Structures are given as C-alpha cells and as structure tokens.
Computed example of a mutant assay.
Amino acid sequence: MQKNIEMLFENYKPFLQLFFLAVAAYVLHRITFLVLEINTKNFFYTIEFLYLIFFGISALLYLILLIVKKKNFEIVGMAFLFGTFTQMLLGYLILRPILESKSEEVIVEKINFFITFILFLLFETLLTVRLLNEKP
C-alpha cells in the first residue's frame, strides 16, 4: 500500500510542481502589475483566467504525455510537439479578441498574454524533458 502511494505521488509530483510554479508566477505577475500601476479593468481576459486556462492546458498535456509514455515511450516527443501545436492553436483562438480590440491597453494586454503563454510553454517543456530523461 505504501509503495503504491509513493509510486502514485512520484508520477504526479510534476502536477504539484506545475501548480506551485503557476501560483508563484501569478503572484509575481500580480505584484508587477501593482508596482507598475497597470490598470487591468479594461482587459478582455483577466490574469486569473489566463493562468487557469494555461494551467489546465498544461496539466492536460502532461497527463496525455504520461499516458503516451505508458503505451509507447518512443512517441512521447511527438505527442509533446502535437500538444504544443494544439496549445498554440488554442492560444491563437483565445488571442483573437485581443488582436481585434481597439482599446488603449491592447499592447499591454498582448504582452501580458504572451508572457503567460511563454511561461507555461517553458514549464511544459521542462516537465517533458524530465519525463523524457526517465528510463522507460
């Protein structure tokens, strides 16, 4: 029983790491906006929404990678590339209303979106590299 719990924790520890990295990044993001006195009231998407969406996509992608790893370790890298492509497509669909926006804060909102997107892409890449370095 103890060994099963340890094995379960070991497999899903990256989800906790992803969560804590996301929370830390969110706090730093919020603090930066407060220090720079950036008004986010006119943003199309809130920072919280972006973090939740990208966290959900990242967690889902990692879960899929774990499943692929169990089935066929050889295609984990390809699954990651496909998942990243899908994430970029979803990111573009989320970004479209911001691109079409005529508000004054649109530049700050675009930068905000891309920083969040790239941050989660970095987290996913680091977790995937760790997954690929494990022995099958």
Score class of each variant (00 low, 15 high):
M1W: 12
Q2W: 09
M7P: 00
L8D: 01
E10C: 01
Y12A: 07
Y12V: 12
L16D: 02
L16E: 05
L18I: 15
A22T: 11
V23S: 06
A24I: 13
A25L: 11
L28M: 11
H29D: 14
I31S: 03
F33N: 06
F33K: 09
L34F: 11
V35S: 05
V35Q: 08
E37P: 00
N39D: 15
K41A: 12
F44A: 05
I47D: 15
F49S: 03
L50C: 03
Y51M: 03
Y51Q: 03
F54C: 01
S58H: 08
L60E: 04
L60M: 12
L60A: 15
L60Q: 07
L61A: 13
Y62C: 00
L66W: 05
I67T: 10
K70M: 04
K70Y: 01
N72A: 11
V76L: 08
M78W: 10
F80L: 10
T84L: 14
Q87E: 08
L90G: 02
Y92V: 13
L95D: 03
P97I: 08
I98C: 06
E100L: 15
S101M: 03
S101Y: 05
S103G: 13
E104Y: 12
E105T: 11
V108E: 06
K110T: 12
K110V: 12
I111N: 09
F113I: 05
F113G: 02
I115P: 01
T116Y: 02
T116N: 09
L122S: 13
F123S: 03
L127Y: 08
L132R: 06
N133P: 00
E134R: 13
K135H: 14
K135N: 13
P136H: 09
